[in-house]
Computed example of a mutant assay.
Amino acid sequence: MLRGLAITPPVIGRISIGRVVEKNGKRLPERDDQFTLTSQIQNRDGWVLHPLNEELRKANTGKLRAIPIRFMFRDPDLNLRAEYSMFDRDTGRPVCVGNGETCKRAGDNGIESLPCPSPDGCAFAQAGGCKPYGRLNVVIGDEDELGSFILRTTSYNSIRTLSARLQYFSAVSGGLLACLPLELKLRGKSTTQSYRSPIFYVDLGVRSGSTLEDALTQAQELDARRRAAGFDQTALDAAARAGFANGAFEDSPDERAAVAEEFYPDAGSDRQGATDGSATDTSAPAPTTLRDKLERKAVLLGGAAA
């Protein structure tokens, strides 16, 4: 294993809730009210759709607002990694990543471990644009049980909701999170900051037409089959945990261009890459009026989607 390189779950596709469009010579994220599954290949028009995208869209008879998924790992924190993150505006490289208690910060003297008071209490964060950044890996379909789709998000609403749901489902299932048949759901809500306009975020629940009791029964049956076949979930979790710990930061070099454009769309407007799943969190044309500016701020604070 190469030291210093985070070994992350194999990714075979992306989950996005928006896209990057070119407006007035700038590449800006644009909101959407449905999921889109893409491959990891780009062309001139953006990310190429994954075959499962059309298949699931037909099953939903319209907009794709629910995706049946399973998780790879028993530990909720392996499936969803959420951190306070600050990236270099030009390169997309991580500058500082923390959890509210401690952080790793890249500087002239290498990577330092420092206290992390969260963005609201950190002068360094407020000067550089630190925000929550979550990565969720899920399994969709049966073609590759160890290959995942990744959803990246900077939405407070999505990160908070997904974190809670993962912990709850892990608890009620007795640690059988990786065996539960679940689905990602796109939900909308209005707040005073959004001027009663809907903002969208990602939630997690049992699959449509099923109950929690049904899901628990299916999880127990799948766990028994896996154990009989020699499947070692504990060892898989341990391997994933060691892989994440192998590097100081999770971001790979080919992810940095997307990160720069997600976090700082104006700075990344001259790049050819497109943003990943969190594009819709900060989507809107440049504000021109006071109302536009207030609405833009509401989207940034509330996390429009993803």
Rank of each mutant, 00 (worst) to 15 (best):
L78S: 04
C179L: 02
L300N: 12
D237S: 06
H50F: 08
P265Q: 09
G129Q: 07
P119I: 12
V95S: 07
G92E: 02
A123F: 06
S208L: 10
C122V: 10
C103H: 04
Y156H: 14
L2V: 11
T154Q: 11
V139A: 05
E145G: 04
P132G: 07
K63N: 01
A127W: 00
T275P: 01
L212H: 02
L176H: 09
C116L: 03
I12M: 08
A267Q: 06
H50K: 04
P132C: 04
I67L: 11
G129Y: 02
A125K: 04
R296C: 08
A164Y: 10
K131T: 11
D33G: 08
L49A: 14
R70Q: 10
R291E: 12
Q193A: 13
C179Y: 13
L184R: 08
R196S: 14
I67E: 00
D88T: 09
V139K: 09
L216H: 03
E143K: 13
L37R: 04
A284W: 12
R3Y: 09
N137C: 06
R207D: 08
L151H: 02
E54P: 00
A274F: 12
R291S: 09
N137Y: 12
L182T: 02
F149D: 02
K63G: 05
S278H: 01
T61E: 07
S173W: 06
N157Y: 05
I140D: 00
R44A: 15
D281T: 13
L182I: 03
I199V: 13
S113E: 15
G147W: 03
D232W: 09
V48E: 15
E262G: 05
P10N: 13
P117L: 08
D88R: 03
D90K: 15
A248C: 05
A279Y: 02
Q167H: 06
L28P: 05
R187D: 01
S118H: 05
P285S: 09
A306E: 13
T8N: 07
A82Q: 03
R135F: 11
P119A: 06
N60T: 03
A258T: 04
Q193G: 12
V97S: 04
G175M: 04
L222K: 15
L236E: 14
V139Q: 08
Y195G: 01
C116S: 05
Y156A: 11
A284Q: 10
C103E: 11
L162Y: 09
